[in-house]
């Protein structure tokens, strides 16, 4: 990225001033990069596990899939200690206020994963009691598809959050609410050799 200094061209800065401004600007970038990098690699998830997806979340935390490889193994059940809300499972009408309260209790910066078809869209439960997608009432960053998603898929979702954190970091309050402006591309491209052959 360019290091264009935020000074007007008419203003003649002294050499010392110029250097110190440049240095502090560099330090800012470096600090932001460092903070983002460390945030990204130590996400503390808050598992809001209601249903089947919660079991896959447990399996992701257990030894075979081992979410600790991505630095996100520190599950904290107090929302005030967490920065990543994983909403796993369907959310009933009675649970939605609870989920909203938990989201509001989490301290900034915070990100939300909506895990599974039920949390993202209601899934097979198109009934009177199930909220048809938590994103209607909460800001969601990453949707993880599947019913329930395999642990690999959830790990991909966590990695997507990491890419968001790395690229955007913490947005200031004026930037909030304008959407992410970022499309998460899957890291794995599936190569289909000859799509017409059966």
């Amino acid at each position: 990225m360019g290091l264009a200094l935020p000074v007007s061209p008419t203003y003649q800065a002294s050499k010392e001033e110029y250097l110190s401004t440049k240095l502090s600007y560099l330090m800012d970038i470096l600090r932001e990069k460092t903070v983002n990098w460390s945030r990204k690699n130590s996400l503390w998830p808050m598992p809001f596990a209601t249903a089947c997806c919660g079991i896959e979340l447990m399996a992701t935390g257990a030894s075979r899939y081992d979410i600790a490889r991505f630095g996100a193994e520190v599950m904290r059940f107090s929302p005030r200690q967490c920065d990543l809300l994983i909403c796993a499972g369907r959310v009933a009408i009675k649970t939605m206020p609870v989920l909203q309260r938990i989201y509001m209790q989490m301290s900034e910066p915070k990100w939300v994963i909506s895990m599974g078809a039920c949390a993202s869209s209601g899934g097979v439960f198109d009934t009177y009691a199930v909220v048809q997608g938590v994103d209607q009432f909460l800001p969601v960053d990453v949707y993880v598809p599947g019913c329930p998603p395999r642990p690999e898929t959830l790990l991909e979702g966590v990695m997507a959050i990491q890419r968001i954190v790395e690229k955007e970091g913490v947005r200031s309050s004026t930037e909030r609410g304008r959407g992410m402006g970022l499309v998460i591309q899957p890291t794995i491209q599936v190569q289909v050799e000859n799509p017409t052959a059966n």
């Binding site: 009408i93 939605m96 206020p97 909203q100 989201y103 509001m104 009177y128 009691a129 199930v130 909220v131 048809q132 209607q136 009432f137 909460l138 800001p139």
Partner: peptide, 8 residues
């Protein structure tokens, strides 16, 4: 009933 929430 399922649409009747405050939006955050």
């Amino acid at each position: 009933e399922r649409e009747d929430f405050e939006r955050i």
